[in-house]
Design a binder for these strands. Structure first.
Lengths: 152, 152
DNA sequence: CTTTCTTTGACTATCTCTGACCTTATTATA
DNA sequence: TATAATAAGGTCAGAGATAGTCAAAGAAAG
């Protein structure tokens, strides 16, 4: 059974596809349409339209309020990559790693096939014999090393 | 009498036969159907639907959660890779890893560019924060995971 | 008799949905 | 203009819905 959040996510993504310059939605309107509480719209945006995933969200309260969603432009892959590597920090969960890797595909830095392989390299399964405490540290080291080699 | 785990295994395999693109199951639903505890489903999947046996399993928790199982098509590269992976053993030096990776390039399983990236993933530099004692074990895990996903 | 495989259940982790309460912006009115 | 009413959107904690882990008990095989 598809989750409501997924349905709303798809709905918003469809809207974004049609509009080049981002969209503006009414939170209450959307909630009424999907027969859910307004805060579920926040949940969807908060979990699916994050900065990490390449979205830029703004909103305004009060009369005539709105939520605007834009997709970050993908102009300079190399600079993006270096920026991301430098901003990764010293530790990385499997989940966060996958978000980064999906972004690399979106930015045409790696192919879909490579992304599968890279995800495998940093999966908990591959790192199962690394101490839990160190695992996220090893993960980020591996990902940085791979991505550096790819763009250099 | 056949063990329950075998019955569940057969049931899932029958489902897989009918669906070309893999299946999605509900752990609790299946457990109810077979009148067993949910964790037995994990046991069956963990012992019968492993990567080594050619299956790829993903799951998600929470509302609308699922376990998805896909059967890997047994291609020539897959068989070759499986053979190589099984021969790798439980530990691998950086030097040996590079020999394997070079062979994969020769066999046209990966590109030269990918080989650079894979070598980076299993380099001592990427694994610098893994205990020396465990490093060769982690290295082989990573390489196995990556290569399996590449041929799958 | 020992080892390995199976079954069970208590506890844990994660994701989704809901509602009460809060903050901010605009508009109407005294 | 100051104030009140109205019209948005935001936050957060808790309830609900799944799945995962692990160790111990039980059963089967060697």
């Amino acid at each position: 059974m598809a989750r409501l959040s997924d349905i709303i996510e798809d709905f918003i993504k469809d809207m974004l596809k049609e509009k080049e310059n981002g969209i503006e939605i009414q939170r209450n309107e959307l909630a009424t349409y999907f027969k859910c509480v307004p805060s579920q719209i926040n949940y969807v945006i908060g979990t699916r339209f994050t900065t990490e995933k390449g979205y830029y969200v703004e909103s305004k309260r009060g009369g005539g309020g709105y939520i605007s969603i834009k997709q970050v432009s993908i102009s300079k892959p190399y600079e993006y990559m270096m920026h991301v590597i430098l901003s990764m920090g010293e530790t990385l969960s499997q989940q966060s790693a996958e978000i980064y890797i999906n972004n690399f595909v979106d930015y045409n830095i790696i192919s879909k096939e490579d992304s599968v392989m890279i995800k495998a390299a940093v999966s908990n399964n591959a790192l199962k014999s690394v101490d839990i405490i160190k695992r996220n540290q090893v993960r980020v080291d591996i990902l940085k090393n791979m991505m550096l080699r790819r763009v250099v």
